[in-house]
Design a protein around this nucleic acid. Sequence first.
DNA 1: GCAAAAGTGTTAGGTGTACACCCATGA
DNA 2: TCATGGGTGTACACCTAACACTTTTGC
Lengths: 229, 229
Amino acid sequence: MTQFYLQEDKLYVSVDCIILGFKENAIHVLIIKRKFEPLKGERSLMGGFVRTNESLDETVSRVVFESTGIEDVYMEQVGTYGEVGRDIGERVISVVYYALIDMELFDEKLEKKHNAEWININNVGQLILDHNRFLEDTLKLMKRRTTTRPVGFNLLPEKFTLPQLQLLYEAIYQRPLDKRNFRKKLFEMDILEKLDEKDKLFSKKGAFYYRFNKEKYDRLLEDGYYFSL
Amino acid sequence: MTQFYLQEDKLYVSVDCIILGFKENAIHVLIIKRKFEPLKGERSLMGGFVRTNESLDETVSRVVFESTGIEDVYMEQVGTYGEVGRDIGERVISVVYYALIDMELFDEKLEKKHNAEWININNVGQLILDHNRFLEDTLKLMKRRTTTRPVGFNLLPEKFTLPQLQLLYEAIYQRPLDKRNFRKKLFEMDILEKLDEKDKLFSKKGAFYYRFNKEKYDRLLEDGYYFSL
DNA sequence: GCAAAAGTGTTAGGTGTACACCCATGA
DNA sequence: TCATGGGTGTACACCTAACACTTTTGC
């Protein structure tokens, strides 16, 4: 029945993950030291091979969990890279995903285990193979996505303040935003829930905590609403 | 040296192509009758398996050439689909691309050879496996791309009239556009070259031919210009 | 009481959208 | 001469971007 397929080639398919987090007012990416030859010890993205009975999403979840200890993260496919000589070891097709995580949930023990490091995206040095390109393409896509869909919230803890949120978007856009315009837009969208609690770590006055209200957002979507920040 | 890879699985990787053309004021997609089991004879997109010494782009070019007789077409990757059970024959990872072609260049002999048919995208029936989903995702992406990059021109002959161009964009947006606003925007961009010739097939008065000026557009791009129609 | 960050409205300019008439030609 | 499609300009609404002062509180 499946005879026709038999004469075709089979290939290695890997998944490479751009794991992004937000700290110190900048987006950071998780970079590891590669554990195997070729290029052992070189700086690399976290990745893994796709197994026969595993979907792409499952591979990504596995890789993200191994490197962060977090499950159920926001992830999106960036693209698939299939140049014949892109991996110097073997012919490997690489499917690239990025994942947005809340760094408060990151399991720091894993940092040593994988020789991992969080690197500011404005200051990533050279990575192996075509991983720098993966990162560039990811950042472009991520920027577009965060402006048209409320995915930025995935980089913050469940409760966050408006100054925090603004700093996040400033890091994404790489330019300062106007406080009043930023808040006006946000409030018009009516997708945030104000809490009674205040955060007092960053200022004497303290800033109110907010929470992203997914239910409200989903209802808006049905009315053909389009997020934009 | 590449020992590490040896213990990993290898998978079939296929490329499925959404080949789009413009005729009779509507976007059409090339649908074929599948030539092999399983699902032989069913309606399907054109596709092919990726070979060991062939990049993804090369596979796409090969498939597009086989089905249309055209080389050097505009193409873009839509995404990669890797659910374990998505192909009922074997476990196959499918990378989806769309291609925009000028139907005047289409080799009609190939239509019979592959049992192919150009179907209006508003009226595509059921396709095999997850091919309907591929098409939906493609149309969304294509719509976004044509509004932000001048790729729509790939669906027209080198010389085209403004009414033609407008009809194309109306087919893409699926809504009527205002003639004056459409032309105003176009002329402001200054990426068209007016020819002295007129097309007289569609009206007595005749409409001037235009040509897309890629050099001008590329120069604008360097100045951070952003196309939008 | 003062330094430091949080919070709050208004205006001008630019962009997008709606809209109606004349022109050229072939039949 | 008339029917058919090609070609042209303006006015209003809306959205975006610029801008400065008051409030709270810990030290």
